[in-house]
Amino acid sequence: MRAATRAPVRAGSFAVQLIAVSVLVLPLLVVTLQAVSRGWFYPDVLPRELTFDPAGEVLGRRRTLAALADGLAVGASVTVVAFIVGWPAARVLAGRSLRARGLVFGVLFLPSLLPAVGLAMGVNIVLLHTPLRSSMGGVVVAHLVPTLPYAVALLTAVFVRTDVDQERQAAVLGASPWQRFRMVTLPAAAGGLAVAAALVFLVSWSQYLLTLLAGGGQVVTITMLLFSALSGGNPTTIAVLALCAALPSVGALAVASVCLREGGGR
């Protein structure tokens, strides 16, 4: 009786999982296939011709390369600044009570609970009154709003787990601050730091509205090229740009998960 009622439940659960997995995987496969095909249109289920030529052509354009460079420069700068600013804050928070930490994280994550379009438009007019308007510096500052909270939270988690006593011992034994950092703090925290850096880069790289409005048209990233290609662009070009926009963040995530696995025990 029990087995008889369970069999359909199991089949149903399997079906749900199958649908969920295909919804998550299928779109990425379709875009990938689209990027290496030419003239793949309705009603063809599979492309007639597989070729890297259109992908090479899109990647060879100066605009594409400039957009990739802009996105990488912004992402790298945001990561560096977020670490420099977030590091001392995380050190402080790691030593505070859970309650104090919660309060600060609450303030930091509050902007994430607001509609993004309003925030991006507001940032645009605030930056207009500063020397940072329509510049890469403005985009970097704007990206700190969504990225810094993650940087501080992840770095705090790293410092909560690291052993302050080891740093003290090193200090007592005469190690300079730089030596302590280089030989004690960094090796113990490396995995967690890599994860934090990868996630900050990923969040920065994925921004669209904030980059568009803070950059005032002067900073053009791959997502912007993708967006303009959407109106009337060729499907292969769109797919190639979509992959260009996805690969760096997927790569950053892969780095993060490898580091997490290696440093997982700590």
Partner: peptide, 20 residues
């Protein structure tokens, strides 16, 4: 240690909201 982080995130978003 906390001031820069709170100022950047809180300050910029508060300024953006106010300007809006």
């Amino acid at each position: 240690g906390l001031a820069p982080v709170v100022l950047i995130v809180g300050g910029l978003s508060a300024a953006a909201l106010l300007a809006g």
